[in-house]
């Protein structure tokens, strides 16, 4: 295994060579100046004088120069490379972010600037391509809406027995479009770095449940909220609402008819949705949240996409989506707000 090249090792090796060559050159110079030849080194006096000359003019200057040079060199390299190591740590710390990441070159040595700038230009191009991709997805979703509205309204006027099934298909397409737009929106918010604000999870839950309760009642199900004290987190209200909406819709699908889906808030920035279905194992949850990455949209109603979106929203908030099989709950865990009032 070959070790990657190291500047410090290379400097040490160079200094050793310079030292060796310098010593040899000095020996020759001294030899010529004092006409010392190998033949009369046998003479005891001459030998002692030669040693004296050598240590005074060769070894001493070498030691005086080479050692501080080696130390200074090491220090210069270490401190010169320090901003690069710091920058790497900073980039690693932003592992959750996929957009807008740049190498901060303010403290970079001039020698490393060109490289870092080139990397930043590539990152900029990737961001641009991703933004274009998202805008394209949003455009498609947008363009689909008006024809889909026409289709839906025309279907409303049909009395044919198949019309109901087709209305269901339109509803599924609509849901998929909504989710596509939501995904694009999360990334756009993230890119625009819209400032998060304090949000009361109980209040958001109340709004979402109020919106979904008529739909739940239509399916013979009930929704309930258990929120006693306000639970504040720092985030984007609309995005948190969208995440919860996805979880509740999921729970409504998983619960038997006549069941109840309960949303509760918990201290420390927790929002949980409990249903009367079989619960979801950590393994199943992981599979469902990975769905969109494998471009697997096989689920008929976009349920998998829904959980993937929830996971994305939570990641953007620095939180997590967790499951508890025993409690039959899916939990949104936010990082607790700095101050609870």
């Amino acid at each position: 295994m070959s070790r990657p090249p190291s500047i410090v090792r290379r400097l040490t090796a160079s200094l050793a060579w310079v030292g060796g060559l310098g010593a040899l050159l000095l020996l020759i110079v001294i030899g010529i100046e004092y006409r010392i030849s190998f033949s009369n080194l046998g003479d005891h006096d001459a030998f002692a004088r030669a040693i004296h000359e050598l240590s005074e003019h060769v070894l001493l200057p070498m030691a005086v120069l080479i050692l501080p040079m080696a130390l200074a060199g090491r220090w210069a390299i270490k401190s010169g490379v320090r901003p690069l190591i710091d920058a790497a740590a900073q980039i690693d710390a932003r592992a959750g972010e996929t957009r807008g990441v740049r190498v901060d070159t303010t403290d970079f040595p001039i020698e490393a600037r060109a490289f870092a700038d080139a990397i930043n230009r590539v990152l900029g191009r990737i961001d641009g391509a991703a933004a274009l991709h998202e805008a394209f997805a949003a455009d498609i979703a947008h363009e689909l809406r008006t024809p889909l509205t026409l289709l839906s309204l025309e279907l409303d006027r049909l009395e044919h027995p198949d019309a109901g099934r087709m209305r269901g298909d339109v509803a599924r397409m609509r849901r998929l479009i909504d989710q596509l737009m939501l995904l694009a929106q999360i990334d756009a918010d993230h890119a625009a770095q819209i400032a998060p604000t304090p949000v009361d999870l109980g209040d958001v839950a109340g709004d979402v449940i109020a919106q979904l309760a008529p739909i739940a009642l239509d399916r013979g199900m009930r929704l309930a909220l258990e929120a006693d004290a306000p639970v504040m987190v720092i985030g984007r209200r609309e995005a948190i609402g969208a995440a919860l909406r996805n979880l509740i819709e999921n729970a409504l699908r998983a619960s038997p008819a006549g069941g109840c889906v309960t949303v509760r808030t918990g201290a420390g920035g927790m929002l949980a949705v409990r249903d009367e279905g079989p619960g979801l194992s950590a393994q199943q949850l992981a599979t469902l949240t990975q769905r969109h990455r494998r471009a697997d949209h096989a689920s008929r109603d976009g349920a998998g996409l829904g959980l993937a979106i929830v996971e994305r929203i939570m990641r953007a908030h620095g939180g997590t989506l967790e499951t508890s099989v025993t409690a039959r709950e899916l939990r949104l865990q936010f990082p607790p707000a700095a101050s609870s009032d």
Partner: peptide, 25 residues
Amino acid sequence: ARDALEDRIRGLDAGADDYLPKPFA
């Protein structure tokens, strides 16, 4: 047809009394 969350807020701020994203029944 936009339904971007920001548009919704913008619309309500501008004085819309309610808001319905396309497609609708």
